[in-house]
Structures are given as structure tokens and as C-alpha cells.
């Protein structure tokens, strides 16, 4: 598939076995996997991902259980697993304890949507010691100065949040945001990847016109829930074919 692309799945959703299978299926097409470690109050997420997180928590799965599943994913060389969770999951456990769990599971990057650039340092430095990348963000609100500060030292990839909004919203790239992506790519040695609102080949293509890659989340969770692993696999394959190099 064209670009440097990520697939978001919720850890242990809909159950641990299906999650691991879906992850392996996803890694056949995508360059990285983003695994949600559920948090009770996911303020950056829309209803689909919030509900998935709620179901995983209601079954009694803890972060440790998610990491045990991640360990079972067959991550091909050159591909990568990121964790996506909220600041409290890391902070209240301690950065070192969380990073140790990640390391053991094979995950090597982390995305914390409620940790903006101004609060980054207290996490980034600790994680770097474990060889774990804390992903940096740019948004439609970012100024040129903020992009210049965020992007040059970025590791892994730069997460470009496509819209003012939460996961599961529709993709609308305004002209200003497109200019910001161009600007970010100029300064970044890491790929600039567009997330939020990528639901199908059409929106993925729009993302790839402007950015180095895309992340798909909400739609994948919906597919997995309604059509199972094979349904998701078929859906991802269609997208990969539509976006073949």
C-alpha cells in the first residue's frame, strides 16, 4: 500500500483472540499498529471507540492483559506497534513501570492524546530511556512556530490530527490545514501521518495526497465488531488494493 500507514485497534476488543488475529491481519497491509489501552474517560474519542473501550473494561481486562495479548502479535521486522492511551494510565502507574510493560510486549512507541507539547517533557525523556518514541502532534490549530518546535525532533512519526474534533468524525481538510501539513513535511525527517476521519479508500486517498500516510481507527473497529476478523481483513484488503503503488 502507498504511504506509511497505521491501523488502530482497541486492545482485547472484541476479545483477546480476535484482537490478536485482527492485528496480524492488519500488519499484512499496514506499516504500524496502534493499540488502544482502554481508559475510563477517553476525551479525544468518539462514541465508537469509547464504547469499545467500555466493553473491554467491563470484561475486567487491565492494561497488563492488553500487553499480554500484544506479546502474541507476530510483528514483522520493520513494522512497529504503538500504544495509544491516556495520560493517567501512564502517570498513575509511573513512566518506568509503563515503559517496562511496553518493552516486554514488543511495543515501541506511544501516543497520548491528552499530553500536548507543553506537557511532553515529563514523559518523553523517560520513555526515550527505554527506546520508546512518544509521538508528537500537529493540529489545524498549530501555528508555524509550534510546528517548527514539534517536528524536527520527532521520532517514529508525526501525528497530524486532521480536524478540530474527536475520533470518528468526518474528514474535512481545509486549505489552512493543508498548508500546515506541507510546512510540517518540509521540516520533518519522520513521516507526517494523518489521522481522524479516515474511513475508506476515498478518504485515505485524500490523506495520501497531502501527508505521508494515514491512520484508520473507528471504521476498523466498526468492521471488526460487525463482520469479525475475516470481514475486517476483506475490508482492509480492498483498501490496500485501491491504494496499491
Amino acid at each position: 500500500m502507498k504511504g506509511y500507514n497505521g491501523l488502530y485497534l482497541m486492545g482485547n476488543f472484541p476479545d483477546p483472540e480476535a484482537f490478536v488475529e485482527a492485528s496480524n491481519a492488519g500488519l499484512a497491509f499496514f506499516d504500524f499498529l496502534e493499540v488502544g489501552v482502554p481508559f475510563s474517560d477517553p476525551v479525544a474519542d468518539g462514541p465508537v471507540i469509547e464504547r469499545a473501550a467500555g466493553k473491554v473494561l467491563a470484561k475486567g481486562y487491565r492494561a497488563e492483559d492488553i500487553f499480554a495479548s500484544i506479546e502474541k502479535i507476530a510483528c514483522p521486522p520493520g513494522k512497529k506497534i504503538y500504544i495509544m492511551t491516556y495520560a493517567n494510565q501512564v502517570f498513575a502507574r509511573g513512566n518506568g513501570a509503563f515503559a517496562t510493560m511496553m518493552k516486554r510486549s514488543g511495543a515501541s512507541g506511544i501516543i497520548l492524546p491528552d499530553v500536548p507539547s507543553v506537557e511532553r517533557a515529563r514523559f518523553e525523556n523517560d520513555f526515550a530511556r527505554y527506546g520508546i518514541d512518544l509521538v508528537r502532534f500537529i493540529t489545524p490549530e498549530s501555528t508555524h512556530e509550534q510546528i517548527q518546535n514539534a517536528v524536527p525532533g520527532a521520532r517514529g512519526f508525526v501525528y497530524c490530527i486532521s480536524i478540530r474534533g474527536i475520533t470518528g468524525s468526518a474528514l474535512v481538510l481545509d486549505a489552512e490545514t493543508k498548508r500546515k501539513i506541507v510546512y510540517a513535511r518540509k521540516y520533518s525527517s519522520a513521516p507526517v501521518v494523518l489521522g481522524f476521519g479516515i474511513r475508506d479508500a476515498h478518504s485515505a486517498r485524500i490523506a495520501l495526497e497531502h501527508a505521508d500516510g494515514f491512520i484508520m481507527g473507528t471504521r476498523a473497529i466498526e468492521k471488526l465488531e460487525s463482520d469479525g476478523v475475516s470481514g475486517l481483513q476483506g475490508f482492509l484488503k480492498e483498501i490496500a488494493m485501491a491504494l496499491a503503488e
Binding site: V43, P116, V118, E119, I138, E141, I161
Partner: peptide, 12 residues
Amino acid sequence: GGKFVPETLINA
């Protein structure tokens, strides 16, 4: 204290 919110809100 601090400002633990999505990056989108920082400028606001």
C-alpha cells in the same frame, strides 16, 4: 495542575 488536554485546545 498543568494542561493535560488535546493539542488542539492548547492555543485556546
